[in-house]
Design a binder for these strands. Structure first.
Lengths: 339, 339
DNA sequence: CTGTTAGCGCATTCAG
DNA sequence: CTGAATGCGCTAACAG
C-alpha cells in the first residue's frame, strides 16, 4: 500500500495535480466547490506532504537547528534547556517545522555544524544560544548567509537579531530584595567571563551594589558554573573576617553547593548568610532551607526566539525582543542579616 | 553564487552526472582515474549533497526521531537524557544522519507524532524510550511499518528490537553491598508502576531481599519519581518502629529529597539509615553526605541504540542488545547499620 | 567502462 | 478557472 501522492488525490477527485496543489495550499486558482472536493479526497486518502519533495521544490527544509556547545553534564542538571527546547518546539510544531538538535564540543565545532547543515540544506536557519564576548558565530553565519536568531542577548556586533531577558534589572531586583532585608555586604558568584549574560549580570551587580554602598566594597568571584567552584568561591568569601551576609549565585547548582559549603564552615543559612540562586529548579526546592530564586520562563523565551526565526524565514525584517524582568521567588534562604 | 550541484561537477570534470554520482558514492562504474578527477572537481567546488534531493530520490530522510513523553521539568533535572542524546548523536553523525528531537505530552501524542513523521517521511525510524507495561507504541509502530528500536528494555511483545541494561543484576549488586555492610531491613522507593524498567527493578528487589531475608519483610513504596513523593515515602518508611536501616531510591532526585526528609525527622545519614540512588549525577556529589549511586553510561547506551536503528535501516536483521551490569559507586551515604 | 534518460513528489509556470 | 508541462538535485535504470 503506497503512500498517497498528489497525483492520487487528483485522480480520485477527477482534477489535475496542479488544482490539488492549489487547493491544498489554500491559494487561488480553484473554485470553492472543487477545493472542498479535493480536500475531502486528500483527507480520505490520509495524505500528508512528503517533506523531501516539498523541501526540494520549495527550496526550504522546513526545519531549524539548535546546536549547544556545553558539556552534557552541565546541560543535564539545568532544567533551563529542556524548558527552552519545549518552548521552541511548541512554536515550531505550530508552524509545521521540525527541530534538529545537536550537542557540540565547542563554538568551532558549532560553526562547522552550521556550515554543514547549510550546505546540505538540512535546516533553513538556526537558533544560537549562549552568546559570548568576541563571539565568532554571528560573523560566520553572516558569511554563510544563514538566517539566525541569537537567544540570550542582543548581538554586540548587531549582526543577528536577538531575544533576551533584562539581566540588569533582574539583578537590581535581587539586590533590592537583599537591601530591604537589611544586607549591606552582598557578594556575587558569577559564571565564566566569556558569556555575555554573565557579564551583563556582573556589571549590573557592580552598579547596583555600588549605588547603595555604605563603605564596604562588594565582592565578586568568577567561576565556571560548576558545583566545585561554587563551593570554593563560597569558602573564600566566608573566610574573611568581614564576610558578606548575602551571596547571589549565577545558577542553582552553585547556590546549592555554596549552601553546603557554608554549613560545613559553620555558617548558618539564612541566619548568618542569605543565599539567592539565579535560576529556579527542582534542585532549589529539595534543599533545606529552600532557596530564594529568580524565576524566568525559559519556555516562553524559547517560543519567542523560534517565532522570530520563522518570521525571518518568512521574509519579515529582523527585530530584537527584550523580555520583562523575571520574578523573584522568596523562599527560606533569605532573611535579615545577623544583628 | 549558486550552490554547486552534481551537474556542475559533471561539467567541470567533463563527464556525465551519473558518473559523478557513482564516483561520489564510491560505487563501481567509473575508472579510478576519472573518479579522482571527479572527486577533485567536487572538492574544488565545495560540493555537499542536497539532503532534500537525496532523500527524495533515495526514499530515505537521513534522519531519525526521538520523542520523549516526560514533563520537561523531570527531564531537565536528570542528566541521564542529555547524556543519552549525546551518545545517540555521536553515532548518528558518524553515519551522516540527523536527529529530530521532540518533547511530547504523553504516549498518545507520541504515537501521533510518529504517524506524522512517517507520513511526511521526515524520519526513517525512531528510537523509543521509557517502555511501559501494556505499551501501545510497539504495535502502533508495527502497523505503520516504521522501523524502531526500544531503548530501555526488551519488548515484552517481541515486536521491536531492544537495547537495555540488566536492571535485575544491578539491583542485586546494590542489595549485596547493603547486606555486606550488615543491613537486614532494606526498603525500596521505586518509580511509577507503569514503567517497565521500574517494574524490573522492583521485582529484582523483591527477589534479592526475600532471598536473604531473616524474618522482617522488605518494604517497597511506589512513587511518581518526584522529590515530593520521595520525601513522603521516606517519612512513612521511617515512621515505623522497626524502620529500615537502608533505602534504595529509583532516581537521584528522590534520594536527595529522602535524605533531607530523614534529617528533618531526626534520622542521621548514614549513621541511622543508609541511602543509595539509582542514578549518578552532579546532584549526588553536592549533597552532604555525598550519595552512593549506581553509575551507568547513558552515552554508550544511546550510541548503541542509535547504531542498532541505523543497522536496521541498512537492512540488517533486528537483534536485542543487553548491557553489562553498571557500577556501584560507594560514597558517604552508606555505612553499617546502627548497632 | 561511460553517457543518456527517466523518475522521486511537489510547486508552479504557461496555455487552454 | 483548469490541465499539461517543467524543474528542484540526486539516484539508478538503461543503452552505447
Amino acid at each position: 500500500m503506497r503512500r498517497p501522492t498528489i497525483a492520487d488525490i487528483a485522480r480520485r477527485a477527477g482534477v489535475s495535480s496542479a488544482a490539488v496543489s492549489f487547493a491544498l495550499n489554500g491559494r487561488p486558482g480553484v473554485s470553492e466547490h472543487t477545493r472542498q472536493r479535493i480536500l475531502a479526497a486528500a483527507d480520505a486518502l490520509g495524505w500528508q506532504p512528503n517533506t523531501a519533495a516539498r523541501a526540494l521544490s520549495a527550496k526550504r527544509a522546513g526545519a531549524v537547528g539548535l546546536a549547544v556547545a556545553r558539556p552534557a553534564r552541565t546541560l543535564g542538571v539545568e532544567p533551563f534547556f529542556m524548558q527552552l527546547i519545549s518552548g521552541i518546539q511548541a512554536e515550531l510544531s505550530e508552524r509545521a517545522n521540525a527541530l534538529l538538535f545537536h550537542l557540540v564540543e565547542d563554538v568551532e565545532a558549532e560553526i562547522g555544524l552550521y556550515r554543514r547543515w547549510w550546505a546540505e540544506r538540512r535546516v533553513d536557519g538556526v537558533l544560537v544560544v549562549d552568546p559570548r564576548s568576541a563571539d565568532p558565530r554571528p560573523a560566520a553565519l553572516r558569511s554563510l548567509g544563514m538566517p539566525a536568531v541569537l537567544a540570550g542577548g542582543p548581538d554586540p556586533e548587531g549582526i543577528l537579531p536577538g531575544v533576551w531577558i533584562d539581566d540588569a534589572r533582574a539583578m537590581a531586583r535581587i539586590v533590592t530584595h537583599l537591601r530591604e532585608l537589611g544586607h549591606q555586604r552582598v557578594a556575587h558568584v558569577s559564571g565564566p567571563s566569556g558569556l555575555l549574560h554573565t557579564e551583563r549580570r556582573s556589571a549590573a551587580f557592580q552598579a547596583a551594589t555600588r549605588r547603595g554602598a555604605t563603605g564596604t566594597a562588594p565582592t565578586a568571584v568568577t567561576t565556571d558554573f560548576s558545583e566545585t567552584e561554587g563551593a570554593r568561591a563560597t569558602r573564600s568569601l566566608l573566610a574573611a573576617a568581614d564576610h558578606p551576609t548575602a551571596i547571589v549565585y549565577d545558577n542553582d547548582v552553585m547556590a546549592v553547593a555554596g549552601m553546603s559549603a557554608a554549613r560545613q564552615a559553620g555558617v548558618a543559612v539564612p541566619a548568618d548568610v542569605s543565599i539567592v540562586a539565579w535560576e529556579d529548579s527542582t534542585l532549589c526546592r529539595v534543599t533545606h532551607p529552600t532557596l530564594t530564586t529568580l524565576s524566568r520562563d525559559p519556555s516562553r523565551f524559547g517560543a519567542t526566539a523560534a517565532g522570530r526565526l520563522l518570521d525571518l524565514l518568512d521574509g519579515e525584517p529582523p527585530t530584537d525582543v527584550e523580555f520583562d524582568v523575571p520574578e523573584l521567588i522568596v523562599r527560606e534562604s533569605t532573611a535579615p542579616p545577623p544583628a
